[in-house]
Design a protein around this nucleic acid. Structure first.
Lengths: 212, 212
DNA sequence: ATATTTACCATACAGTTGTATGGTATTTAT
DNA sequence: ATAAATACCATACAACTGTATGGTAAATAT
């Protein structure tokens, strides 16, 4: 049995994926039929059988909206990209960044945000300590006093943001560190996003409240 | 109206979340009833109405398995850490890795997997192109012909894996690239994981057209 | 004391769902 | 030339789905 999908099967598979992206669940046979203008669910049914036979999906019999995509094996979520890999000539990758943490299930986290581990203690007065993981939401607009992640000449910092005319100041909470003042036009400077949360492993109390 | 959930409502909400994370779809009323030992769906129905009234979920009327969680995107999932940021003295970070993509939301993906963007065209005949994002599932066991990510002297490659006696060969699909042959004992060599998926942004068309 | 909320049950119903079966027409392979 | 695969249609059905309605019992609030 060929594992190649026909055009139509391919389109249906794409629709399945699309729906999972947008709605989070598989469509029903009727919905697929609708989408492709079929007057009958049986047509879809047969296409799905073919697609399943070829191994692209798996259906839980009798269960509605339960088509599994077996394209790899599991849940796609918005996820950060760790680095670059080479398929041709090797490029540099960041092996150390292959690190995952288990975060609690009920804390806020925008889907497109990513995590960074904090080193250093300049924000300890804002209750962010070395070793903490900050949740960063990508964006461009910030309010004075918000904690942001900025990149300056290939280094990244977590600081409080203050907008001045013609420049941006990045303050540490900790007095030992001088504010960083950057010209607005400095092309080596870029603010990546807003820190929307902090996570700390190992029994310590979470300090999200103080983040405001 | 209080926005606080009762114990039972809370448990049901948790179950909803749990199911969404694990299966990607909401359970049906019957399934919830089953799980909590209710003999009747109506009981669940009423709990859901309460939960909805309190703003924690939203139901698409008449649509099966379509409970939306309105907690925003407030769930934590296992996520990779990109690198290290400095709050005090800047440390090195991987600026290029501060990049996020929207992946199909509720398709399955191993929770501990991570993403890498592919550069180069050596796998284009396997329909992985430069710029694509591959989903990598960490692991140690691979079958011949599977596409893996390997690290060789601080560089990473995406290649097809072939096990030989005493060595491992990494092949490109593209004939222009020579296979890489590595001794099994080479300590500078390590296979990171298996490529379980590919994701491509840009436009509406997804990978499957090319999959055939 | 009495009204409200919470937590369950039963029954009923129409619409949806996946599945089964049988059929036609066209293209592709042998 | 004929078998096989592809792409659709129609009808039928049992199980499932969400919803509606009405009821009981206990706890809580007024």
């Amino acid at each position: 049995m060929s594992k190649e999908l026909t055009d139509i099967q391919s389109k249906i598979l794409n629709f399945l994926i699309e729906q999972k992206v947008e709605k989070g669940i598989s469509p029903s046979l009727a919905e697929i039929a609708d989408r492709f203008g079929y007057k009958n669910r049986a047509t879809v049914q047969q296409h799905l059988q073919s697609i399943e036979k070829k191994g692209y999906i798996k259906k839980n019999p009798k269960r509605s909206r339960s088509i599994e995509l077996t394209l790899g094996d599991k849940y796609f979520f918005p996820r950060p990209i760790l680095g670059e890999v080479a398929a041709g000539n090797p490029l540099t990758i960041y092996p150390d960044s292959i690190d995952t943490i288990q975060l609690p299930t009920i804390v806020k986290m925008p889907m497109d945000s990513f995590l960074l581990r904090v080193k250093g203690d300049s924000l300890k007065d804002a209750y962010i300590f070395s070793g903490d993981v900050v949740i960063v939401k990508p964006g461009n607009e910030f309010l004075d006093g918000q904690i942001v992640v900025a990149i300056l000449d290939d280094s990244a910092v977590v600081k409080r943001y203050y907008r001045k005319s013609g420049s941006i100041e990045l303050h540490s909470e900790n007095q030992d560190y001088q504010p960083i003042i950057v010209d607005l036009n400095d092309s080596n400077f870029r603010i990546v996003g807003l820190v929307v949360g902090v996570y700390r492993t190992m029994g310590k109390k979470s300090l999200n409240n103080q983040l405001s």
